[in-house]
Design a protein around this nucleic acid. Structure first.
Lengths: 154, 154
DNA sequence: ACATCTAATGCTACAATGTTGCATCAAATC
DNA sequence: GATTTGATGCAACATTGTAGCATTAGATGT
């Protein structure tokens, strides 16, 4: 189980999450959900592929994309734009999933900032409907900030 | 590096902005800056290419990418992650002008929300250094919201 | 346990976006 | 006008994400 207390809907096994949406419980989906639950930060397709490489499941790029798409579609996971061109994914933990993210420009890592809320009630122009907000802070993370002079890349 | 020429909305000529950074004043850079200044919203490479198509300048993708990269590097323009995989660009207007953006999930358009500030002073974990914040609100813009409000939501 | 039905998978091929190397051109300077 | 060097244009490549389709395997009924 993750160190981050997985809040409300937890102990929720991957199988339960999948079955609750009427989807088929496949090895790929289970492995993806468990990998995301274990991870302390959002994962990209690429990172996820690396994690799943050790598992007994196959690692086809397309299958992974589609499994992730399905999870997002069902509201089990959510996409984060991050700093680079690639999406990152994390498991949604209940309704209070509206936290900000920190993107380290040195190591490229994305960190969840559980304590930092995204904008709650910005006043939008008339006619605009807000569905969700995404706040990404850019800078240097603790590790890279301290070792700023080293220039270590990921 | 000298202070940025305070680009009054449309007054600062492209030539001045470029020369202030010690760069060469080329047709491509001038055309790109002027196109961005004229646009009411951030433009992607693709959109920019379409705008520049009519101009007398050549239309090479790589040149456009490099011109944009240079503008961002010099602090004349800034990148916005938006909702899709493509970057969007807008002219920076002063150092303290950090506004949020709205991404319409229906039409894909990005709108500047001049009135909505990005996070002011989030409290970060120890060791983290904030360089800039990016707030993107997702939903339906005025045009798309009105059109879709009647029918079935997703 | 077996048969069946079809969602999910795993290919291949493709599209969109962005980058690198290098020869050539042209903006700034002399 | 000649020189110098940054900027351009082209080709080739890298990364990220999609589409089509035959096959596999999860769920279900007998």
């Amino acid at each position: 189980m993750p160190l981050h207390a997985p809040a409300a809907t937890t102990a929720a096994s991957a199988r339960e999450l999948i079955a609750a949406q009427g989807g088929r419980v496949t090895r790929t989906r289970v492995a993806v959900i468990e990998a995301l639950q274990r991870s302390a930060h959002p994962l990209s397709h690429d990172e996820l592929g690396a994690v799943l490489d050790g598992a007994d499941i196959a690692h086809d790029r397309v299958t992974l994309y589609r499994a992730l798409d399905w999870l997002v579609e069902q509201g089990i996971a959510q996409r984060i734009a991050g700093g680079e061109r690639a999406w990152r994914f994390e498991i949604r933990r209940g309704d209070d999933h509206r936290h900000a993210h920190f993107h380290c420009e040195r190591c490229g890592q994305i960190v969840c900032l559980e304590d930092v809320p995204t904008a709650s009630a910005p006043h939008l122009p008339a006619g605009f409907e807000l569905e969700r907000a995404e706040l990404v802070l850019h800078g240097a993370c603790a590790d890279c900030g301290r070792a700023a002079a080293k220039g270590s890349a990921r």
